[in-house]
């Protein structure tokens, strides 16, 4: 079964077309890098797949679910259960501690307290922030914040993670470490991953690279 099937997706902002008949597929557990210059439509594609923006035409299927058939609540449930996002600027909730940030999506899903604690503890260890678990976002370094964001994304055991420039706001050494972490955890949890990036470095953990230009996918299935 495919983790993601995007077919002939179109999206415009006003009269400006952003996505032009974009089609893309991802297998379960597969990691794909989405590259291209600024304004080519990468983030818009990611937002449409994550259900936080609506396409004008075409279809998106995550697992068995057709996003076009979902209303706003349905998309919310999709994000609670199936698709997670990791942002360039981390976007941790500032009033929550590290532990609470990771735990929050599990609350939304209504996961029982025992299991919640168990999962959070495990993820804290996996991303290596045991000593910072009670700290708040403003007390963390950029690398630490992105580790927590990754743990939060993985907490719901999603079918797919969408990562928007996950290393874009980090120094190269920290970026390297984050990529290693993403690779390890994606393999361990068998989670598909679509990563928007400008960095060739990121492609080292991906099985494929697709490139976008002016709203179209120019090249597909470039094996790394």
């Amino acid at each position: 079964m495919k983790a993601l099937q995007v077919s002939r997706l179109t999206k415009s902002y006003g009269s400006v077309p952003i996505l032009k008949e974009v089609s893309l597929t991802l297998d379960c557990g597969e990691r794909v890098a989405l590259m291209g210059p600024s304004g080519s439509g990468k983030s818009t594609l990611l937002n449409c797949i994550g259900g936080i923006d609506r396409p004008d035409g075409g279809s998106i299927q995550v697992g068995q679910v057709d996003l076009g058939a979902l209303d706003e609540d349905g998309l919310c449930h999709l994000r609670r259960k199936t698709v997670s996002t990791v942002f360039q600027f981390f976007h941790l909730l500032p009033t929550l501690s590290v532990r609470e940030n990771i735990e929050f999506p599990l609350h939304l899903r209504g996961v029982e307290a025992t299991e919640r604690l168990e999962r959070v503890e495990k993820l804290i260890k996996e991303v290596g922030v045991e000593s910072r678990s009670e700290a708040y976002p403003h007390e963390l370094s950029g690398g630490e914040m992105q580790r927590v964001a990754i743990a939060r994304a993985l907490s719901i055991r999603p079918r797919m993670i969408l990562a928007d420039e996950p290393t874009g706001n980090l120094d190269s050494k920290t970026g390297e470490a984050i990529l290693d972490l993403l690779e390890t955890l994606s393999d361990r949890h068998e989670t598909a991953m679509l990563m928007v990036t400008h960095s060739r470095e990121v492609t080292r953990i991906c099985s494929r690279v697709v490139e976008m230009r002016d709203g179209r996918l120019l090249e597909e299935d470039i094996a790394v």
């Binding site: 609540d73 919310c76 994000r79």
Partner: peptide, 15 residues
């Protein structure tokens, strides 16, 4: 706003 966007991206409904 950004915080609410994150909440929405994590699955919190508009309601």
């Amino acid at each position: 706003r950004a915080e609410m966007a994150v909440l929405r991206s994590l699955g919190v409904t508009p309601l």
